[in-house]
């Protein structure tokens, strides 16, 4: 998928934040709050904690926007990486992984809530979800466990009771397939 044709590109926004532009930070928040909050909430499953983490994430964006380098990946990747690592850190710190065990590898929700009627993002969500739905169940499960629960391949193998080699193959083939499907959708 290509960078979205928004008024100001994500890259320009982050560069402006790096120069200390508060309104750029606010614009960045407005653009990505739904998806990043959704991500954090999915990891933590606790609204109050998720709001704390969302605040920490944007404070980190404010302080570290100068580290963003578009040659090393998309702006969204940079933002999502910060949000995911912060949320997973919080999850580990709270030792609350157990309460998520039952929800392991839950299927993506069928519908996006009313709050998500941000046209651009919901279009992206739909593309990614459709692509993910085309993967084999086992591939999807492995990718979601790694991404939303921060499990290593070894931990996933233990969780699912599958041989480590199988998990490795599913993870690799899963992400490669996802990339191919996304490329098809983008064209």
């Amino acid at each position: 998928m290509q960078a979205e044709p928004s008024q100001t590109s994500d890259n320009d926004l982050l560069h402006a934040v790096a120069r200390g532009d508060e309104s750029a930070l606010a614009a960045c928040y407005d653009r990505y709050r739904l998806i990043l909050f959704g991500l954090i909430l999915r990891i933590l499953n606790d609204r109050q904690e998720a709001e704390d983490v969302l605040q920490e994430v944007f404070l980190q964006v404010w302080r570290r926007a100068g580290d963003f380098d578009e040659a090393r990946g998309r702006a969204f990747t940079w933002l999502a990486t910060i949000a995911r690592s912060r949320a997973l850190d919080r999850l580990r710190a709270a030792g609350s992984r157990a309460r998520l065990a039952e929800e392991a590898a839950q299927e993506p929700a069928d519908e996006i809530g009313d709050a998500a009627l941000d046209a651009l993002n919901s279009e992206k969500s739909a593309i990614v979800r459709n692509a993910l739905a085309e993967l084999a169940d086992e591939q999807r499960k492995v990718l979601l466990l790694a991404y939303f629960e921060g499990l290593t391949q070894t931990e996933i193998a233990e969780r699912l009771g599958d041989p480590l080699g199988t998990v490795k193959t599913r993870m690799r083939s899963g992400l490669i397939k996802l990339r191919e499907l996304l490329a098809q959708h983008a064209t």
């Binding site: 998806i35 991500l39 991404y147 992400l175």
Partner: peptide, 18 residues
């Protein structure tokens, strides 16, 4: 490139309004 792909998994979480 792979990290850019993996980050898109965030879009499978249901968007929520803080």
């Amino acid at each position: 490139a792979l990290r850019d792909d993996a980050a898109l998994l965030a879009y499978t979480a249901e968007p929520v309004e803080p």
